[in-house]
Design a protein around this nucleic acid. Structure first.
Lengths: 230, 230
DNA sequence: CAGTATCCTCGAGGATACTG
DNA sequence: CAGTATCCTCGAGGATACTG
């Protein structure tokens, strides 16, 4: 609270926002994570102790509110928190222009990618009933993860959920991250043989329509176009 | 660098910005401080060691550039740094709406206020030649500071510069900070007898025109009007 | 003026085990 | 499921003294 001890709005704002992890916690609520474990899956490298503490601080500052929803707890942005969304998207858009590059090896995490993807499923493009997609990342930090979509609910799994797999997405981990983020379009990675699909051709054709674009895809595309002009 | 290890623009932005003090260092460059000691006077509670280290980090990240200007060094925002200005003003404007209140005792620092004021002098409203204004803060954290304006240059001093004082601004420290920030208008503090001027009536009448408003004064006024409507 | 080198402290936060 | 309690480590950063 008294860290800066300056009577200045920027200092007051930094007091609220410039703690490690805080922007990512707010991001998770902005993209639809409201339960403790869901928020944690979106930020796997924060410890549960620290996440708990940061959430308490955000509640005390009036940016987040905690509420009992029946049996479980939920965290939601308050009006003050929602008023921060533009600033936080602004931080991300700035980074797209100046500090966001091709994925580095330590940033690769296919489980995290699939977890984030599960929030962007276009259910009206999905087959009726359950669809199970297995992602197999090869190359650096290889791994597997599963996306299960059923009617209008989807989830990401780091363990085999045991359902029959309808479609396998297999590819280089860097390429999967480039596609996920919007840094490169699906078609390019497929035609470069970096990513391939295995499954019924009906599903293979439909797959590119199953996910809404990354929230930063528009800014990334604009930035790439500006780069090419320069 | 690898703190978050997430392939996300918000994480990349937080990596650059969410360090303690960093937003305040950028603020100082945004308002016109470019030399090490000037930046430090704007952020007196940071140690010189840490300021030096943060500046180096900002240079490495491409947000600030350091250049020799003749004998001395200067720090300036790069294009990437200038592109951050809207985000940083956004943080301050958000704080005005949700996290900026009347000054607390630990935030009072009349020397810092006068130092910041020296950048906002309207030289065309100032008398020709040198003008020395002494600020005397009474009440909590009392202190004195001097503002010296000469032609088109001004500075703030924490020690008596030894010049004849042309005008004395005397008042409660909280009131001086409210006026400085734009939280309350000059006329209100004067008519409430919280602040008074001592000096030739010509200078007393002119004083309220001598400084450009605080950069957040507009947002503060808008916010106060919205508060009254609610 | 504009820093840097060195030493030392303390508190943020990780690991682990636990709870309603 | 959603955390909390406890213990411990290590590194950020303050204090001090120094330099071109």
């Amino acid at each position: 609270m008294a860290t800066y001890a300056e009577y200045c709005p920027i200092a007051a704002g930094a007091e609220c926002l410039a703690d490690r992890w805080t922007l990512l916690i707010l991001r998770e609520m902005m993209v639809g994570a409201h339960r403790f474990n869901d928020i944690h899956r979106g930020i796997p490298r924060i410890s549960r102790t620290l996440l708990s503490q940061r959430l308490r601080t955000l509640v005390n500052r009036g940016i987040v509110e905690r509420a009992s929803m029946g049996a479980h707890q939920e965290y939601h942005l308050t009006a003050a928190g929602r008023d921060l969304e533009d600033v936080i998207w602004g931080v991300g858009n700035w980074a797209v222009r100046w500090a966001f590059f091709d994925p580095e090896e330590h940033e690769l995490d296919i489980v995290w990618v699939v977890w984030q993807l599960h929030r962007r499923v276009n259910f009206d493009q999905m087959p009726a009933g359950r669809t199970t997609v297995e992602f197999r990342a090869t190359g650096a930090r290889p791994g597997r993860a599963w996306l299960v979509s059923d009617r209008n609910a989807a989830t990401g799994c780091e363990m085999d959920p045991g359902y029959e797999v309808d479609l396998v997405v297999c590819g280089d981990n860097h390429a999967l991250h480039r596609w996920y983020s919007g840094v490169s379009p699906w078609r390019r990675e497929v035609s470069d043989n970096q990513i391939s699909l295995q499954g019924p051709s009906r599903l293979v054709r439909a797959f590119p329509t199953w996910f809404a674009p990354n929230p930063f895809a528009g800014e990334i595309t604009r930035h790439q176009a500006a780069q090419r002009r320069a």
